[in-house]
Design a protein around this nucleic acid. Structure first.
Length: 803
DNA sequence: AGCACGCCGACT
DNA sequence: GTCGGCGTGCTC
């Protein structure tokens, strides 16, 4: 028997299956989708069996055989194996990368080389003998002396010792010691043999009698009976109990809610939506639904009941949520409804915890997984529904290889299982809404808030007018007044500012110099906390200048506003207010995210000030005012989705106010109140925004009217990057159809990052059957020639942004 | 990507 | 004379 193996080597010529002989002792158990350890050239690597066959195209004499079968049960189902091929092809990634992304990081190979002494008696070298000190196996990395290393290599050559590569899991299965207590009569017999002086043993035995025939965790026995480990050991030796190490899971901090919560009563709209989704799952139809529901319209309840429906049929469910909204508040809702049947996967878990959650899914101990992007690869084998909440979120697109979009993967998987996909959002992506309008997806509308609260009233404040009136603070008169009244009424306020740090740039008022990053084409951001200027692209840090580095003038000023500066201003204007700041700088620590939110929910803060991350999921009844300090920040990005992102963000932030009994009010401060993305966020009229934005996209030839693929080039040498970008563009132009547009190559918006010059080229197409093959040829040229010259090139089909 | 092999400069 | 630099080529 021959196995085709994809080996754990991400390199161009290795990106194909290699044939190995399956040793006879493995033939009964080996299956596709299992991991194996195989010899590869001079070393040992991990690989994935993708096919079993009887003949090889190669001379069988030349084949090596599999060293070791790592998994008795395959870790990838045939469906996931098939999916990995699709992912690799469509995203132009290595197949090994597509395979690895489906498994928790803990299961990827970790390599360690060991010295294995075969014939110790043949070693004459004194230095080596004293180093070995009688050991026959030890990690190679312990050898730090290069002279010794050379001696070892020489002995390896003549077979006195070998270098063995051990492949271990990065995280092991956690085991716990349990004891099985014997029956009462056995315990009685033992009791008679214990000497009366052995008081502690008597005590423990008494405890055991009260728990006869039970299986308990050893550590808890010691604690409860109040004895030391040797006492237990003595009794186990006497036969009072038997011990065993059993596999266990690392329990994430929060205890799981086991009691289930009853479904809520649905509104008429929710019922219609649910019925259509349920009908699709009953018919095994791989339909994609777009659930367009305004904030507070009860999308989650529809998800929950649709999941219940498929669980009753013995099927499983995947729920994807953007990473930042994967809060305990969110997940506990699923756990409250489905109890222990839920696994949660998010970046807050340790590698071991992620591995444990994965094993629960793999063993089918849970039926529902709630997780971020990568949970789309959950190893279920009977999926009944896939849900993507907040489907417009760009985090569903992975930014490194394989550059997959979870929405596309969801649809591929749904086609395999014949199950519906539900994309939910208050502000759908233009792409999805366009597909729904064309009937590719089925549109489900929830236009009313479930608890019948009104939408918050939204006021757009023109900051140019404020400036004219002489108000130079970052708070308009109206917003400041709003904050003041909320503080008096003991209600809570959310302030949103899409920029962290203190000031966005440092400018000399005499010569106009803006302090730039020395490595990147971007201005530095002032961080007050440690008095530094930071580059948010390469991480460069430098001290704050007191005089202009160009003209030595002392008139240097900080411009623009970040969350840190806003915090200071709030403290000045409202000294009595308790302010919490939430941005990447204050949430870097594990658990700090939850801590901040808990303080808000417990009423220990009056104002929550934050970036992106507060736009979602917050649902606190006492928040009645939302202020957007500068709505324009996202609007002027050099990206065709800037207007869409702005509209989505404003709508989402506005949705944080007045979700319960108290009415909500929203102030949006802007310098461009006439822009349609801001104007329409006022009324939250998605459909009007959709039509206006579609007109713009049609005019400039962007999605959803055209598909796009972005090719980025970077090189330390400006002339070389221009040269290669031209070569690449010319090649693509020649290969693709005449209806396809090639934009560029042109310098990227940030033309230099980390001392590398960046150029890019945009491909726009409606129908381009040769796209993938052409890009593959381009990548081949890059990997076989251009790469050696220091060029970096990346290809992103359907990029989430074109920076 | 690694790792070995192979062919030319500076050290005991 | 040898040690070691990294160019080249292969991996079932």
């Amino acid at each position: 028997m021959i196995a085709e193996v994809i080996v754990d080597v991400a390199a161009y010529p290795i990106d194909r299956p290699f044939d190995y002989v399956v040793p006879s002792n493995m033939q009964e158990v080996i299956e596709c989708g299992s991991r194996v350890k195989v010899p590869f050239g001079p070393r040992k690597v991990l690989g994935y069996v993708t096919r079993l066959k009887t003949d090889s195209d190669l001379d069988e004499e030349k084949l090596k055989s599999i060293d070791e079968l790592i998994d008795l049960e395959p870790v990838l189902s045939p469906e996931l194996l098939k999916l990995s091929k699709i992912v690799a092809r469509e995203t132009l990634a290595y197949e090994i990368d597509a395979l690895q992304v489906m498994l928790p990081a803990a299961m990827r190979g970790k390599y360690e080389k060991f010295i294995e002494v075969e014939k110790p008696y043949e070693i004459r070298d004194a230095a080596l003998l004293s180093f070995l000190n009688g050991r026959t196996r030890l990690p190679l990395k312990q050898v730090t002396d290069s002279a010794l290393l050379k001696i070892i290599k020489a002995y390896a050559k003549i077979g006195v010792l070998t270098i063995d590569t051990a492949i271990s899991q990065q995280t092991k299965v956690k085991k716990v010691r349990v004891i099985h207590i014997k029956d009462a009569s056995t315990l009685q017999t033992i009791d008679e043999t214990i000497h009366t002086n052995a008081k502690k043993q008597k005590e423990l035995l008494d405890w055991m009698r009260r728990h006869a025939n039970k299986t308990v965790v050893a550590a808890s026995v010691l604690k409860e009976a109040g004895v030391q480990a040797p006492v237990l050991k003595a009794l186990i030796e006497k036969g009072a109990a038997s011990e065993e190490h059993v596999e266990t899971y690392r329990e994430p901090d929060a205890p799981r809610l086991r009691d289930t919560q009853l479904p809520l009563t649905l509104t008429e709209e929710q019922k219609v939506a649910l019925d259509l989704v349920n009908e699709a799952s009953d018919k095994n139809s791989a339909k994609t639904f777009l659930l367009h529901g305004i904030t507070g319209s009860g999308k989650t309840e529809v998800y929950l009941q649709a999941i219940s429906h498929v669980l009753k049929q013995g099927k499983e469910a995947i729920v994807l949520v953007p990473e930042i909204s994967l809060t305990p508040q969110m997940t506990s809702r699923f756990q409250a409804r489905f109890g222990g049947l839920v696994a949660v996967m998010h970046s807050g878990l340790s590698a071991g915890e992620k591995y444990d959650e994965w094993r629960k899914i793999h063993r089918k101990e849970v039926k529902v997984v709630v997780g971020a992007r990568s949970a789309i690869f959950a190893p279920f084998e009977n999926i009944g529904i896939i849900i993507l909440d907040e489907e417009h979120e760009s985090t569903y697109k992975q930014e490194d290889n394989p550059r997959y979009h979870a929405r596309d993967v969801a649809i591929w998987r749904s086609e395999h299982f014949g199950c519906p996909v539900v994309l939910g959002s208050a502000t759908p992506s233009l792409e999805s809404y366009a597909r729904a309008s064309k009937g590719v997806y089925t549109l489900l509308e929830l236009s009313k808030r479930a608890l019948n609260q009104g939408l918050p009233s939204v006021t757009v404040v023109d900051m140019r007018e404020e400036l004219k009136e002489g108000n130079r603070s970052m708070f308009s008169v109206e917003l400041a007044e709003g904050i003041r009244t909320r503080l008096q009424r003991k209600e809570q306020i959310v302030l949103f500012l899409n920029k962290r740090g203190f000031s966005s740039f440092v400018l000399c008022r005499d010569c106009g110099t803006v302090v730039q990053c020395p490595n990147c084409d971007i201005s530095l951001t002032y961080h007050r906390a440690n008095e530094t200027l930071k580059c948010h692209y390469c991480g460069h840090e430098e001290g704050v200048p007191t005089i202009c580095p160009e003209c030595e003038s002392e008139h240097i000023r900080f411009f623009g506003t970040g969350t840190q500066k806003a915090e200071e201003e709030i403290a000045k204007l409202f000294p009595e207010a308790r302010v919490l700041r939430m941005d990447v700088d204050t949430t870097r620590q594990k658990g700090s995210h939850e801590r901040i939110l808990r303080q808000v929910s417990e009423g220990n803060a009056d104002i929550l000030l934050g970036t992106q991350m507060i736009a979602k999921g917050l649902d606190f009844p006492n928040i009645t005012l939302v202020g957007v300090l500068a709505a324009d920040t996202t609007l002027h990005l050099a990206d065709f989705r800037a207007a869409e992102k702005t509209f989505q963000l404003l709508t989402q932030v506005s949705g944080r106010a007045g979700r319960h009994e108290l009415a909500g009010e929203v102030f949006i401060q802007t310098y461009t109140p006439e822009h349609y993305a801001i104007e329409l966020a006022k009324t939250q009229h998605f459909e009007t925004f959709y039509h206006m934005e579609m007109a713009a996209r049609r005019q400039y030839g962007y999605p959803p009217f055209f598909y796009i693929t972005l090719i980025q080039f970077s090189h330390e040498d400006l002339m070389k990057v221009i040269d290669y970008a031209d070569k690449g563009a010319t090649f693509i132009k020649g290969a693709l159809s005449p209806d396809t547009f090639i934009i560029g190559p042109a310098a990227a918006a940030i033309s230099r990052v980390n001392n590398r010059y960046r150029y890019q080229c945009l491909i726009k197409y409606k129908k381009e059957p040769k796209l993938i093959d052409t890009l593959q040829q381009l990548i081949k040229m890059y990997r076989t020639n251009w790469m050696k010259d220091g060029l970096l090139m990346s290809v992103d089909v359907d990029p989430s942004s074109i920076f």
